[in-house]
Every structure is written in structure tokens, then in C-alpha cells.
Amino acid sequence: MADFDITPYRQRLAAQLVDWAQVGSAADLEAIEGGMVAPPAAFVVPLSDAPSANPLAGDFVQHVVVRLGVVIALSNLSDGEGAGAMSELSLRRSQVRAALAGWSPNEAIGWAQRGPGTLLKFNDGVLWWMDEYVTDFYERRA
């Protein structure tokens, strides 16, 4: 396996989150930086990979742990304290979790597990949140 491909995760979200305004990738997120986004939106971004040492002599086998992020953009201005946005955030995070947690695009990749989530920013009436998902695979070469 070459570099880890996040495309199946974006495709899975696009298929599952049919009532969302946009589901995209890191390139889409960069394109709207500083511009307008139509919430609710989700963007799948690569965060990191951590390969282990090769424990075998001869054949090359390396365990790789991958972290990807799902950036969620929401706008709910129904109140001045942000309770509406936080309530919607809980709902939208659970929709993403239902689509990804315990799912794998194929038998060579481990099931996605939910990692930490964090508030990225609140800007121009849009709340930006990121949840991390962790999966793994084995890279092999003879």
C-alpha cells in the first residue's frame, strides 16, 4: 500500500450525510478559507501517520497508525449564547460518528475509531469543530 488515501472516508460521508450542504476534502477547505461556507459542512483532512519499526528481518512489514480529521462547520444563530450551535454540533457529530466509527473501506485497513475532538474557532457566525478518527494498516514489501 502506498500513501494512505482518505478519499473513501470523504465518499462515505458524502453518501451518509445527504442533508448536509457540503462534504469535501482538505482542498475544498483551503478553497473556502476566508470565504463563505454553506453549513452544515464536513471536510475530511489528513492529520498524521505514525509507522512503527519493522520487526522482521528480510520481508518488510510495517504497522502504520493513521489519524484523519473531520472538520465540521455549523451556523446556528438562534440565540446569543451559542446554545443552538452546540445542540446542533452534538447532532452533527453523532451523524459523522455513525458513518465512520467502526467502518473500514476494505479488509486491508482497520476500522475507524473515534479520537479526540476540539473547537477550532468561531468566526463570522460559523462554528468550526474537528473530530479525529484513527485507523491503521500494514505496509508490506517482499
Rank of each mutant, 00 (worst) to 15 (best):
V66C: 08
V66K: 11
V66G: 08
V66S: 09
V66D: 09
V66T: 03
R67K: 13
R67S: 14
R67I: 14
L68N: 11
L68H: 09
L68E: 12
G69P: 04
G69D: 06
G69M: 10
G69E: 08
G69Q: 03
V70K: 06
V70G: 10
V70Y: 03
V70M: 05
V70F: 04
V70C: 14
V71K: 11
V71A: 13
V71P: 10
I72D: 07
I72P: 03
A73C: 15
A73E: 10
A73L: 11
A73I: 05
A73D: 14
L74Q: 04
S75L: 06
S75W: 02
S75G: 05
S75C: 09
S75D: 04
S75T: 12
S75N: 05
S75P: 01
N76S: 06
N76A: 07
N76Y: 08
N76L: 01
N76W: 05
L77W: 06
L77H: 06
S78A: 15
S78R: 08
S78Q: 11
S78E: 15
D79E: 00
D79S: 00
D79P: 00
G80S: 11
G80F: 03
G80K: 08
G80A: 12
G80R: 14
E81C: 09
E81K: 11
E81R: 15
E81F: 12
E81Y: 06
E81Q: 13
G82N: 03
A83I: 00
A83M: 07
A83P: 04
A83S: 10
A83D: 12
A83V: 01
A83W: 01
G84I: 00
G84K: 00
G84S: 02
G84C: 05
G84R: 00
G84M: 01
G84D: 00
A85L: 04
A85E: 10
A85W: 03
A85N: 01
A85T: 03
M86V: 01
M86T: 01
M86D: 13
M86E: 10
S87E: 06
S87G: 11
S87K: 02
S87R: 01
S87Q: 12
S87I: 00
E88I: 02
E88F: 08
E88H: 05
E88N: 07
L89W: 06
L89N: 11
L89P: 09
L89Y: 03
S90Q: 15
S90L: 15
S90E: 15
S90T: 09
S90A: 12
S90Y: 10
S90M: 15
L91Y: 14
L91R: 13
L91N: 14
L91D: 14
L91H: 13
R92Y: 05
R92W: 02
R92N: 04
R93A: 07
R93T: 11
S94P: 07
S94Q: 15
S94I: 05
S94Y: 09
S94G: 12
Q95H: 06
Q95D: 13
Q95N: 08
Q95Y: 03
V96H: 12
V96E: 07
V96T: 09
R97W: 09
R97L: 08
R97D: 13
R97N: 12
R97E: 15
R97P: 11
R97F: 07
R97C: 13
A98E: 15
A98W: 05
A98P: 11
A99R: 00
A99I: 00
A99M: 00
A99Y: 01
A99T: 02
A99P: 01
L100M: 04
L100G: 06
L100V: 06
A101R: 15
A101P: 14
A101H: 15
A101T: 12
